[in-house]
């Protein structure tokens, strides 16, 4: 059997407040198991506060979480011991639910730094200003991003939908292997959703896997997943095919929470 892109084994996570002087919070992820083969797209759905973003953050290496148990393998290698930038360079990409505004840092300059950091890690030559610009233009077309936005500071004054486009633009530029999309569809109007979904679909391929976190069936009409998982109370309580999403749309999450295994 080939090595999966991502393998999560019995992952337990809690908030680590040691750096902030607070007390450690209770467990948020309570034993996640998930296998994402190369080339597949899996959707993760689940009620608010169930731990979806926490999972995405832990996979991307965000500080402030403590893994109390379990492991995560990325292409068979231990992911959790790698610094966030190392993960990004190795091909992990998180499209943030709430992209950060960084006024004063030019979006284009930032994107070029990021692309070149990733390229040099992969043994590719760094792009000069002209090469980068033409690559950026091409990818901006893909997500229909106006050039004017690229001239601003990173996400500075971007609308919710513009921020999401910028995330997918970054994804297209960085050419990752594992894409974690955290509610990329929320806040998008119908046309924007179609554009973004088109951009994401264009990036689908046998060497790339995606984890789509979403609340809405609508996104999955455009980006059809291979599997759907339901995360509730820090665990995956149900997995199924793409029809599971529709079932959730009809019935909500209540029936699943009822069948949740008692906490151990």
């Amino acid at each position: 059997m080939t090595t999966p892109m991502l393998e999560i084994r019995d992952l337990h996570v809690r908030i680590d407040a040691s750096g902030t002087g607070g007390t450690d919070g209770e467990a948020i992820l309570r034993g996640i198991d998930l296998v994402l083969p190369a080339g597949e797209v899996h959707a993760i759905m689940g009620p608010n506060g169930s731990g979806k973003s926490t999972l995405a953050h832990v996979l991307a290496g965000k500080p402030g979480y403590e893994v109390t148990k379990g492991e995560v393998l990325f292409e068979g290698r231990d992911l959790l011991s790698i610094a966030p930038e190392g993960r990004a360079r190795a091909g992990v990409f998180l499209a943030f639910q709430y992209p950060v505004e960084i006024p004063g840092v030019g979006n284009m300059y930032f994107l070029k730094q990021a692309v070149n950091a990733v390229r040099s890690h992969r043994g590719l030559e760094e792009l000069d200003a002209m090469e980068f610009l033409s690559l950026a233009r091409e990818k901006m077309k893909l997500v229909e991003m106006p050039e004017e936005l690229a001239k601003r500071g990173v996400n500075e004054g971007f609308s919710g939908g513009e921020k999401k486009r910028n995330e997918i633009l970054q994804m297209a530029l960085l050419d990752p292997k594992l894409c974690l999309l955290d509610e990329t569809d929320s806040g998008l109007d119908i046309d924007a959703l179609r554009v973004i979904a088109g951009g994401v679909n264009a990036l689908r391929g046998p060497a790339r896997s995606m984890l789509l976190i979403t609340h809405y069936q609508r996104l999955l009409d455009y980006i059809v997943p291979d599997h759907v998982h339901v995360l509730a109370g820090g665990r995956i309580v149900k997995s199924g095919g793409k029809e599971l999403a529709r079932e959730l749309e009809d019935k909500g999450y209540g029936w699943l929470q009822a069948m949740r295994a008692p906490a151990g």
């Binding site: 991307a60 290496g61 965000k62 500080p63 610094a83 966030p84 930038e85 993960r87 990004a88 360079r89 990409f93 998180l94 943030f96 992209p99 950060v100 960084i102 006024p103 004063g104 840092v105 930032f110 730094q113 990021a114 950091a117 990733v118 890690h121 500071g153 990173v154 970054q170 960085l174």
Partner: peptide
């Protein structure tokens, strides 16, 4: 800003480069 630092690192910038970029901003 810690969130901004993480955002930049999640795009492949190492911590010193990310800090320098924020200071430049």
């Amino acid at each position: 800003d810690e969130d901004a630092l993480f955002y930049l690192r999640a795009r492949g910038l190492d911590a010193p480069a990310a800090r320098a970029l924020l200071v430049r901003g």
